[in-house]
Write a protein that binds this DNA or RNA. Structure first.
Length: 424
RNA sequence: GGAGAGGUGGCCGAGAGGCUGAAGGCAACUGCCUGCUAAGCAGUUAUAGGGGAAACUCUAUCGAGGGUUCGAAUCCCUCCCUCUCCGCCA
């Protein structure tokens, strides 16, 4: 959510920037509602002041045994009027807030302008796309042939976009999760969290999934909770409503959770394989940092995610999302895309974003500055490090052998009981 | 699932319709004082939203939301959370 005070004085400027993300955007409602709100507030508060003073007078009169009927009757009218104004004010504030909640974050100045992913800016390419001496197969074919992936039975259990892993496949997924968590906690300074996988509505407003993107979420019938679509939601909200000490910052958290997404609007996309599932595992990095350092921290966080790919020996590139591809809450996002020989292209495996104070304002996450003064909003960041299912895909496709077996990357072998190769 | 208890400031804890943004204690900060890290005295220490150039001022906030009343931390209703006991359960 954007700061209403900032909006008041920079409306045109903000509107101009946001039009690069969404050309249809119109912020005039903000001014209208904000002006009305302040009028109502002033009227209401003047009446309340009167009521407070007169009520004291009434108390005094009664104490000395005098008659206060006249004042009481007058105040009955005042109270009625206050109630009316408060009602109107509440309605006005709700409309304003509802509207503010639907306005995306303002992008950082370094974000390239563009319409869609084709306009994303390539920052760096690390490693060469894997060269195979034979025709590369897609991970689904590799996995099914090895008996470690079973989409048919998964469909029997749950339907489309689910998977069943078996034997070395299931273990490989678990190995990846443990490898990633160990790396981030052991070498990158993150604290591991294990969070609820169902969290209440409020959390989703905090991180920006609600109110706009309800269609992507699984809501639990009859309950206030939704299944988490990413650990970003529970982890970022851990400190919601809190005022932290500046000395506690930066906070680095990592968490593995399953992620549940309806994938509404992606019909026909990635229908085969593990790339796009209703349920997948992800290891997430989340940071709460002081505002001055958030872009520095974004680079570090991205490097932490890249380190996973480096250790696994997987080629990848990093792109900066353009205005048209940028997520609702983000001010700047780097996507990490891993090379998939089976598809012959780079595919997103991580998304690392700086939300600046957009989520912190929604979730009310603040810190008390060391030198004193008013609490300030922290900056929040997060990134996948990595999407586990897609990493498994990348391992299968990049380490496939002509005989159909798959070599286990060295970094994972300790997590696979020393297994060096997955064979039928 | 059943029965009970409770949610007050950074923390502890009073308050039971009006003078309570909230006693008292602790903690922290500031000043004074005492020749030393101790004690004493005085003061300060919440958040948000308005108005004002500013000094300052107004409004709201005692788990959340509603109600009663001229006036609610205090009375009534609904909800949330925590704790204890019983039941059930990995």
């Amino acid at each position: 959510m954007l700061d209403i005070k900032y909006l008041r004085s920079h409306l045109k400027d903000v509107e101009g920037k946001l039009k690069k993300r969404d050309a249809t955007l119109d912020l005039s409602l903000v001014t209208e509602l904000d002006t009305k709100r302040r009028e109502l507030l002033q009227d209401g508060e003047a009446l309340k002041e009167k009521r407070n003073t007169v009520s004291v007078e009434i108390g005094n009169l009664k104490k000395e045994g005098s008659d206060a009927t006249e004042l009481i009757v007058e105040m009955q009218g005042v109270s009625r009027r206050i109630k009316e104004i408060d009602l109107e004010l509440a309605e006005c504030e709700e409309r304003l807030k509802d509207f503010l909640l639907t306005i995306p974050n303002v992008q950082h100045e370094s974000v390239p302008q563009g319409a869609d992913e084709d306009d994303n800016r390539i920052e760096r390419i690390v490693g060469e796309p894997t060269e195979l001496a034979f025709t590369a197969k897609e991970h689904g074919d590799i996995g099914e042939a090895l008996g470690i992936l079973d989409f048919e039975r998964a469909a029997k259990l749950s339907g489309a976009r689910f998977s069943l892993l078996r034997g070395a496949g299931a273990r490989l997924e678990r190995a990846l999760i443990n490898f990633m968590l160990d790396l981030h906690t052991g070498e990158h300074g993150y604290t591991e969290l294990l969070t609820p996988y169902m969290v209440n509505r409020e959390c989703y407003f905090g991180t920006g999934q609600l109110p706009k993107f309800e269609d992507d979420l699984y809501k639990l019938e009859g309950l206030d909770q939704y299944l988490v679509p990413t650990a970003e939601v529970p982890v970022t909200n851990v400190h919601s409503g809190e005022v932290l000490r500046e000395s506690e910052l930066p906070l680095y958290y990592t968490a593995h959770t399953p992620c549940f997404r309806k994938e509404a609007g992606s019909y026909g996309k990635d229908v085969k394989g593990l790339i796009r599932q209703h349920q997948f595992n992800k290891v997430e990095l989340v940071k709460l940092v002081s505002p001055e350092k958030s872009y520095e921290e974004l680079d570090l966080l991205t490097a932490n995610a890249e380190e996973v790919l480096k250790r696994l020996g997987l080629p990848y590139r990093v792109v900066t999302l353009c205005t048209g591809d940028l997520g609702f809450s983000s001010a700047k996002t780097y996507d990490i895309e891993v090379w998939l020989p089976g598809q012959g292209k780079y595919r997103e495996i991580s998304s690392c974003s700086n939300f600046e104070d957009f989520q912190a304002r929604r979730a009310q996450i603040r810190f008390k500055p060391e030198g004193g003064g008013k609490p300030r909003y922290v900056h929040t960041l997060n990134g996948s490090a990595l999407a586990v299912g897609r990493t498994l895909v990348a391992v299968l496709e990049n380490y496939q052998q002509e005989d159909g077996s798959v070599v286990v990357p060295e970094a994972l072998r300790p997590y696979m009981g020393g297994l060096e190769r997955i064979e039928f």
